[in-house]
Design a protein around this nucleic acid. Sequence first.
DNA 1: GATTAAGCGAGACGGTACGTCACGTCTTCCG
DNA 2: CGGAAGACGTGACGTACCGTCTCGCTTAATC
Lengths: 213, 213, 213, 213
Amino acid sequence: MGLMTRTPQAPGSPADVAAPGRRRGRPVSLESRHAVLTTAAGLLDERGFNGFTIDEVARRSGVSKATIYKHWAGGFDVAVDAYGDSVTSAVPVIATGDAVSDLTSQIRRLAEFYASPRGRVIAQLLAAGTGQERGAALLREKFFAKRRADTAALIEQGKANGQLRADLDTDLAIDLLFGPIVFRLFNGIEPLDTDGAAALARMALRAIVPSPG
Amino acid sequence: MGLMTRTPQAPGSPADVAAPGRRRGRPVSLESRHAVLTTAAGLLDERGFNGFTIDEVARRSGVSKATIYKHWAGGFDVAVDAYGDSVTSAVPVIATGDAVSDLTSQIRRLAEFYASPRGRVIAQLLAAGTGQERGAALLREKFFAKRRADTAALIEQGKANGQLRADLDTDLAIDLLFGPIVFRLFNGIEPLDTDGAAALARMALRAIVPSPG
Amino acid sequence: MGLMTRTPQAPGSPADVAAPGRRRGRPVSLESRHAVLTTAAGLLDERGFNGFTIDEVARRSGVSKATIYKHWAGGFDVAVDAYGDSVTSAVPVIATGDAVSDLTSQIRRLAEFYASPRGRVIAQLLAAGTGQERGAALLREKFFAKRRADTAALIEQGKANGQLRADLDTDLAIDLLFGPIVFRLFNGIEPLDTDGAAALARMALRAIVPSPG
Amino acid sequence: MGLMTRTPQAPGSPADVAAPGRRRGRPVSLESRHAVLTTAAGLLDERGFNGFTIDEVARRSGVSKATIYKHWAGGFDVAVDAYGDSVTSAVPVIATGDAVSDLTSQIRRLAEFYASPRGRVIAQLLAAGTGQERGAALLREKFFAKRRADTAALIEQGKANGQLRADLDTDLAIDLLFGPIVFRLFNGIEPLDTDGAAALARMALRAIVPSPG
DNA sequence: GATTAAGCGAGACGGTACGTCACGTCTTCCG
DNA sequence: CGGAAGACGTGACGTACCGTCTCGCTTAATC
């Protein structure tokens, strides 16, 4: 698709939420906004990010291109917004207190998600955002920030209660646990099935639990 | 950019050049081929894969678009061919017989490469190939097949001489070692520096060496 | 600019203001009206009728588009209103009693006006009104009706006192005298200078003064 | 429609005619060119110049917008080209040797033409070209140059054989004869019918024939 | 003084055309 | 007969005005 370079008005900025009293002019149509996002999500499901065009979103949603461009900087931003918290809500970080089993479960669920159609599309978005300062930032913020923070908390807790090595670099540990799943996607290797995910979890966990000795 | 769907005549396979009995008519111009690849590599260095267009390659190289399309299925294929064995030659798999230190060294060199400009472009290519059967296959073949095989051999050897766990799933081990590097790229996280790479290697290796007990 | 097709509520007719008992509610803002016309005239001076947009008038004048559309049917009407009696007041019909010299003087002054920047813009308005029933009527009414009537009176007087041929078709005579000036404008021929205008007057007058014989 | 400001490659330039041997690449499609002009003429007949859009021409003709823009600078140029020698061929300058009757006939035929639908559209084109250097030049060249030259020759001949005044400014005389017809168009006055045209001819000719005295 | 109408600025909206760009195909001529 | 030159149809891009539509504020005339 190609990313856009302008930066109109920070689509997901908190400004539009913090409005104290109603602003002057005609208010932003929430219906339009919703129609765009719904349509865009459907289009992504149907065609992936290739074949995703603003023109088509406008056609299907009945929202004009001008309006779309007023709210988002371009197709990439719309797509990211449309898939919104797909990942976050599809694969919530569940903390039961048992870090090892929590991480194992999360690896399995994440592998499943990336093997699903929506997961493949997310991968395309990751791809499209690559090397684009704005794109990458947007993705990080929308898709990963919360999950990463939650997972980090989970690991910290594991470190505290002795389930995980105390000397662990938390960030690096996250990369180690989940990187392989994404790596396979981008290498065109079959995504991990449930058994594969379990095997990965077993292996990766050996790197972060305390040494038996 | 978008990938192409046709499949003309085995893009870049040397077979059509090495034909033993010269066919009638003007022979295929190796110069054209070379000019395209050189120009394309320069263009990728300059603009990345976004901003890489066949039109521009044709303009700069003096080779006609028709000729380019006769040899490659589209921009993606040209780019992959142009960057050729960038990775393979930039980060050769060196086997000294010491699997642990060999893998450590390789992780370090791979992280360095992906942090370099060419590495970022490779990441864009990985991204662009996502979800495209052909694209992914081409990438796997051009960029990863040999390296992966070599690394697998290295690991097998490590398993044989007891440096690595005998029950290791070799493929999964490769994902575990190198996945985190690529993962960071796609998440817009700072690529690993030398120290980070060393830390990653230490951590990951714990997962694949024999248990002390 | 393009012409509009709706016909809202008699733009600018003073009738709706002079209503005997003041209506309820906030009265029409004369300031807004004035600001629009002033701004519009400036914009026309600056860019001509091409490049004249309601959006820009609204932007510069601080009057909202909705208000403008409430008072005028569209850009064309605003422009015509803004240039108001430019022609009429710039080239008044002066009747001294000597029809021949009066017409000569008027031809000269009209040629000068159309050669001026404002004259060129008037020509654009004439152009834009072409073939649009409403547009043409508006122009005729705003720009030409009075002048034409005054000139007709002047000619009638000339016919009465023997300076002009008694069998003259007055309307046609007006077209003959002033048509050539406008004609040159639309043909992209240099507008007449003072000498040219004098020559035109001499020539045209031969057609409408009594035969010497 | 609005005029364009770029100046790509001089649409009607003689270059494309003077090509000695065939040029290298794929030749310009005469069919496309023809399809555009035919469609454009139909569209002008149907809607006038307002309501004439490149998009619609492209849609109806099956020729792509890109191709149209490669050959013409914009809608105005297409329209002018499409109506081509409408005027010239519709109202040819006929020279029988009798200047007075030739001019009379021509005035009548020109008045008829401008009263016809195509004539009204030509008037819109004249209008749209006003004040645009390029537009005016294009019109002059396409529509008026030949007619004006032919008419000038006709007048010169009349001057030579004594039918017309010897001291006549030929150019000005042309403006005098034909200006009134166009003037009425732009003033929204009913175009001249046959009788009116005859009356105009009688009157105007008095200005250019030798004085009886 | 409270109520009730307008008029108005602000500005979002659906629509439609603009002119540009890259894609991948094609036609023609030159070596 | 391979290849360059380059025109072509396709279809998306992002922008600009159009004329309409809420909103909430302001300003009288009426109650």
